[in-house]
Simulated scan of single mutants.
Amino acid sequence: MAALVGACLALPLGALPATAADAAPSAMACKPAAACETKIPVKVVIVSLFEIGEDEGDTAGEFQLWKERRGLTQRIAFPQGFHDLYYNSETQVLGMVTGIGTSRSTASTMALGLDERFDLRQAYWLVAGIAGIDPEDATIGSVAWARYVVDGDLAHEIDAREIPADWKTGYFARGTQGPNDKTTPVDPESGEVFAINPSLESWAFRLTKDVKLPDTPAIAAERRAFAGYPMAQKPPFVLEGEQLSAMTFWHGKLLTDWANDWVDYWTKGKGEFVTSAMEDTGVMQAMTRLDASGRVDAERVLVLRAGSNFTMPPEGTDAATYLLRENEGYAGLEAAVENLYTVGSVVVDELLGNWDTYAAKTP
Rank of each mutant, 00 (worst) to 15 (best):
A10M: 05
F50H: 10
I52R: 11
A34I: 00
P32H: 03
I52L: 15
S26P: 01
T73E: 15
A27W: 01
A23T: 01
A34W: 00
I40C: 06
K43Q: 04
L16W: 01
A18M: 02
G99R: 11
V93H: 08
W66I: 11
T91G: 07
D22S: 07
A60E: 14
E62K: 04
L65F: 12
A24W: 13
I76D: 06
G14C: 03
P12G: 01
G71K: 11
A34L: 01
A23R: 00
L85D: 05
P79C: 09
I76Q: 07
T38Y: 05
M28Q: 11
F50V: 12
K67N: 12
K39G: 00
Q74P: 05
L72D: 12
E37N: 10
E62R: 07
L49H: 13
E51H: 13
I52A: 03
T91H: 03
A21P: 00
T38W: 02
A35Y: 01
E90L: 07
F78I: 05
F82R: 09
F78Q: 06
Y86A: 10
A77K: 13
T59H: 12
P17R: 06
H83M: 09
S89A: 15
D84Y: 04
I76V: 14
E68Y: 04
D55T: 13
A18Q: 05
E56L: 13
T91Y: 06
G53S: 15
A21L: 07
L85F: 08
Q92E: 15
A27K: 00
V93S: 10
A29P: 00
E56K: 12
V45M: 09
A60L: 08
L94K: 03
A77E: 13
N88I: 02
D58E: 14
G57D: 14
T19R: 06
Q92S: 14
V44F: 00
P25S: 05
G99T: 11
F78R: 05
A20D: 01
L49W: 06
L65R: 15
A35F: 00
K31E: 06
N88E: 08
A18H: 03
R70H: 14
E90M: 03
T73F: 11
M96I: 14
R70W: 15
D84P: 07
A20G: 15
V45W: 11
I100H: 10
P41I: 02
F82H: 15
R75H: 13
C30R: 09
E54V: 02
P25G: 08
V93N: 08
K31M: 02
P41A: 04
R75P: 04
L49A: 09
Y87G: 06
P25E: 06
A10K: 09
Y86T: 04
